[in-house]
Write a protein that binds this DNA or RNA. Structure first.
Length: 117
RNA sequence: CAGGUCAGCCAGGUGCGCGCGCUUAAUCAGUGAGGAAAGUCCGUACACCGCAGAGCAGGAUGCCAGGUAACCCCUGGGAGGGCGUAAGCUCUCGGACCGGGCCACAGAGACAUACCGCUCGCAAGAGUAAGGGUGAAAAGGUGGUGUAAGAGACCACCGCGUCGCUGGUAACAGGGACGGCCAGGUAACCCCCAUCCGGUGCAAGGUCAAACAGGAGAGAGAGCCUGCUCGGCUCAUUUGAUCUCCGGGUAGACCGCAUGAGUUGGCUGGUAACAGUCAAUCGAGAUAGAUGCGCAUCCACGACAGAAUACGGCUUACCGGUUGACCUGAGAU
RNA sequence: GUCUCCGUGGCCUAAUGGAUAAGGCACUGGCCUCCGAAGCCAGCAAUCUGGGUUCGAAUCCCAGCGGAGAUA
């Protein structure tokens, strides 16, 4: 209950474009992760699926998959960062377990998961 | 039984666990995408702006009748063409005597003409348009009479036009009389005729309203270290710190926003589209944008695809399943 | 969401309803050269898709597909 409090959504387009400009990027086949430290003790995130991914059904599916993995990993992630996750076409086809692994790998690479496993 | 045609319906179900949006003070609980939600191709509602009334310009529609809030929509009917043995499917539809434009190449000639021809004649010339050739298209067609050769010059049938009659609300159909066919096509070229259309679109529009700047008034103190006193510091006291009020209104929030040309069922009228009436019922409302995942089980093994102000159509995409009517062929009784 | 516009070889352009769809760059082959470049000659290759109007469609009409832009 307390862990869910420091996970928030980013809503304004100004903040998101700031992350796109200034954030550090870490990419995989399925998605791109951009990180920018904020001065708060919370994690704020946003998920983007552009028209390149597909129609409305495919875009919703991508966002759903990525969002659910963020909420699952949230207790492990070190707070104080803004995250921006951009979906790629491949994340529609990859198996859920492989996507899980790729997600953790990228977050370790970005140094966001401190107390791993 | 096989093949086909048309019309309609469904769009995985049930249980458990985790998770999301909305309703709610909160839990529990309830509820939660489509037949096309799509394309944005038409038509409206609704909102604001404009507007005495009318017209011009521009655009749309175009066989007839009906339906509808309205329609490039639907239903029924008509004429003509194409496909199919058939059930049936499909395409076309005001005006060429308002006027203008265009009709390449070929061909003698494309809207006006006689090249090769035919006939008469010694010839000059005259009479012709049957046949040839060109072309998408060349002064009704076929057969006969007739003639020097020919020609609606005349006759029969068909086509065309005009005027009555009968049936039909009408488009039109049937049949009759007369004309003797004086003149091509194209209006998805301009145009003419009839009917309709003001513009912009929910990011419409409205309410509340930080901050910054502005105006009016009060005004000598206000703030910080610090909870209080002392003390200190900063900013003010001409160019005004600070406080109060004001209008417009940005960020943001809320309304618009889902009880409606609603849905389901019955009855009545109508061939039908549809209308009327009675009863029951409330079935999404997000705002970077909510519906999924796992397990079990049943089956036909799940396609196309995701609401964003709402509705009526059209068009396009689509795994399959199923119901009814009809047509053709074969066999049996 | 709403509105507007466009679509011609690999790329950039042209076109009166009447052609075998034109030109430049690129590509391929040849000539030239000791070898290249340049130049010259020849070739390859296209009207987004499907219907319709018309004697005839890249052009006109309808539907679809794809791509741009505007709107805060």
């Amino acid at each position: 209950m307390s862990s869910s409090l420091n996970l928030a959504r980013l809503r304004s387009s100004q903040e998101i474009s700031a992350i796109r400009k200034e954030g550090q990027s870490f990419s995989s086949r399925n998605f791109v992760l951009l990180v920018k430290p904020n001065l708060l003790d919370t994690i704020r995130y946003a998920v983007i699926a552009s028209r390149r991914v597909g129609g409305a059904v495919e875009r919703n599916r991508c966002k759903r998959r990525l969002r659910s993995r963020v909420t699952r990993l949230a207790p492990k992630i070190t707070p104080g960062n803004d995250l921006l996750i951009i979906a790629r076409i491949a994340c529609l086809e990859t198996e859920p377990e492989i996507l899980d692994k790729a997600f953790e790998q990228v977050f370790i690479q970005a140094g966001l998961i401190s107390n791993h496993v």
